[in-house]
């Protein structure tokens, strides 16, 4: 359980960047890869992620899952 990390479901991402602004460890960034909707998907740096769940709380598109 201690190694819980944020997992990204990139297809749902709309590239709004709210998670990037709220991440306390600056672990989230845009990947430069585009999903089927045409949005620049976010990606999580697992070395920096502490699994706090703030990205899950603020994301309007249910992109994140913590496990």
């Amino acid at each position: 359980m201690e190694n819980a990390k944020a997992r990204v479901k990139g297809e749902l991402c709309k590239s709004c960047g709210i998670c990037i602004n709220n991440c306390p460890k600056q672990a989230i960034s845009k990947s430069g890869q585009f999903n089927n909707g045409g949005y620049d998907m976010v990606v999580v740096d697992e070395d920096k992620c502490i699994g706090c769940g703030i990205c899950y709380t603020v994301c309007p598109d249910y992109v994140f899952e913590i496990n």
Binding site: A4, K14, G51, N67
Partner: peptide, 20 residues
């Protein structure tokens, strides 16, 4: 501290604008 969190099953992808 860390725990598993998952959005409820009933929520499916929606058509709101980015950042809504």
């Amino acid at each position: 501290m860390a725990k598993n969190i998952k959005a409820p099953e009933a929520l499916k992808p929606h058509r709101f604008c980015p950042g809504c």
